[in-house]
Design a protein around this nucleic acid. Structure first.
Lengths: 222, 222
DNA sequence: TTCCGAACTGAAGGATCGTTCAGATATATT
DNA sequence: AATATATCTGAACGATCCTTCAGTTCGGAA
């Protein structure tokens, strides 16, 4: 049994790190193949053999980098979250204070951009989380994403939060929900990027403004 | 929130409708067992045999009511959405106009109440959607939920929406995201119902107010 | 060129899994 | 009580699945 929110368990760790160039390409090919199989065949037909075949390698090769199927799926999720966190960390590198509404829009825009950049991958990833038994986003990964949002919120010159962590959590959850709803399934429905972005902007701005407004002026309080 | 799809395909229809009392109890037991197996064993170990065993029946019995495993999972989701829609339809049965902020809180409260009533079922259901290949929430089911929200929004005496459908979709998606995050997929820890509720209220109120304010006065528009 | 470790192969093993169906049992009807 | 229908049983089957490992090929350092 895994403790929730702890570091990445041994069961899900990658098996070896690439030293030669080709193996790096192999890992990348496996990642990409997993997404494609997921979209084309569905979760129940997402097979290690099928993924390897699509990646142009043999099953044995796959198992040199991932100790089991779960670890492969976990790596996909981890990579996506890190990409998202990196994008967030690139927001407003200067230390200048800005209006909260501007910051909210930047957060929303960045979130939307990452999701839209790879619509197929986004749609695919929403299906894998349920496949990892007892899956919980490891604390270290979520904390990085949370931290990037917190650092942005600190730049607000016109507002402050009673509980920035709570605000970041709710904001990220809501954006995730909106994204999941918008991308629902790639095959039939068409995604309207403009609507997705404008709705994301609106809900981010509205929520953050409201959450900041409810700040209580009490000094020392738990 | 899933984008609405087509009607329920034959592949996912229930096989027979109960006529005797015992069979009704059997179906209920199977539903409940599926949730328990999902929570205790995870998605990959969610087996028709295991579900039947936990329900106290044999596999054959399960297959008398569900043509396949997918149909069982689909039934679980469908039931949950219908329960949610029913709860929403029970909001403000009178025709009196009310402030939008009050309505927003009622929507949030109702949503939270349904989710909190069965935390285990809620957490379990978030994992099954990915297991149904090419899953899309059938239009008839989503439309009912959307309709209940639209009817509530019409009662706002102090605001109106440019696109009520868009507002309902975004609101429901955001609430779904917040719920999913709160129930443990995103971060570790136990669920705090009070926080969940207050955050749901805040984001619902903030978003709906903002969306209503941005109403444009143009008459005929797509 | 030689050589060694890194990277890759893919058939085979062992374990489930989804699903069926012929027969047994329970309930309702006459 | 006898008959008809609804419900349940669970061993068995074919289809995959995940994973391993002995052997082969490739890349680069010497």
């Amino acid at each position: 049994m895994e403790k929730p929110g702890s570091a990445v368990p041994q069961r899900l760790k990658v098996r070896k790190t690439p030293v030669q160039t080709r193996s790096g390409a192999t890992v990348e090919a496996i990642h990409e193949a997993a997404i494609q199989v997921l979209l084309a065949e569905g979760l129940t037909r997402l097979t290690t053999t099928r993924v390897a075949e699509r990646a142009g390698v043999s099953v044995g090769t796959l198992y040199q980098y991932f100790p089991n199927k779960e670890a492969l799926l976990f790596a996909l999720l981890q990579r996506h979250f890190e990409e998202l966190a990196s994008a967030m960390e690139g927001i407003g590198p200067d230390d200048a204070k800005q209006p909260l509404s501007i910051l909210a829009e930047q957060i929303a825009d960045t979130y939307v951009s990452v999701k839209i950049a790879r619509p197929d991958a986004t749609a695919a990833l929403y299906r894998v989380a349920g496949a990892i038994d007892q899956f919980r986003l490891p604390a270290e990964i979520y904390k990085r994403l949370e931290g990037s949002v917190l650092r942005i919120l600190e730049k607000a010159g016109d507002a402050s939060f009673n509980s920035p962590e709570q605000a970041a959590f709710t904001l990220l959850s809501a954006l995730a929900g909106l994204s999941r709803g918008s991308f629902g399934n790639l095959t039939a429905g068409t995604i309207d990027p403009d609507r997705f972005r404008s709705e994301a902007r609106m809900i981010a701005t509205a929520y953050l403004t409201a959450a900041a407004q409810t700040k209580t002026k009490t000094v020392g309080d738990a």
